[in-house]
């Protein structure tokens, strides 16, 4: 898992990115679709974008305040670990 954080000089926003490798693109897509439906609870102040490329799940955050960013990233990591544990216990995915 690779992570990177910095302040964007153009927008002044705090940015954070995370790349999570999965055994296959199928599993990365499952994680994406499990983690995507729930919106960020707060209106404005933060945006989060999830995408899959190959077998890697990528998440990009952009936030006004470090506090909001930290809460969102923490909560995402909690959710991610639950999804991965679920896959380990109840996977692998059936053939489509």
């Amino acid at each position: 898992m690779a992570a990177d954080g910095e302040t964007n000089p153009e927008t002044g926003k705090l940015e954070f990115s995370l790349d999570v490798p999965f055994p296959s693109s199928r599993e990365a897509t499952i994680a994406l679709r499990s983690l995507s439906p729930d919106r960020e609870p707060r209106r404005g102040g933060i945006s989060k974008h999830l995408s899959v490329s190959g077998s890697t799940l990528s998440v990009r955050w952009s936030a006004d305040e470090a506090r909001i960013l930290r809460v969102s990233v923490n909560s995402f990591l909690d959710h991610l670990s639950l999804v991965i544990e679920t896959m380990e216990m109840f996977g692998p995915p059936v053939a489509l």
Binding site: I30, P37, P41, H79, V83, V94
Partner: peptide, 20 residues
């Protein structure tokens, strides 16, 4: 409550996809 609902929904979504 939001947080408990999400926790359980995450597992439901994941197994639904794993099991097709």
């Amino acid at each position: 409550m939001g947080a408990p609902l999400v926790t359980v929904a995450l597992v439901a979504r994941t197994v639904a996809q794993l099991w097709g």
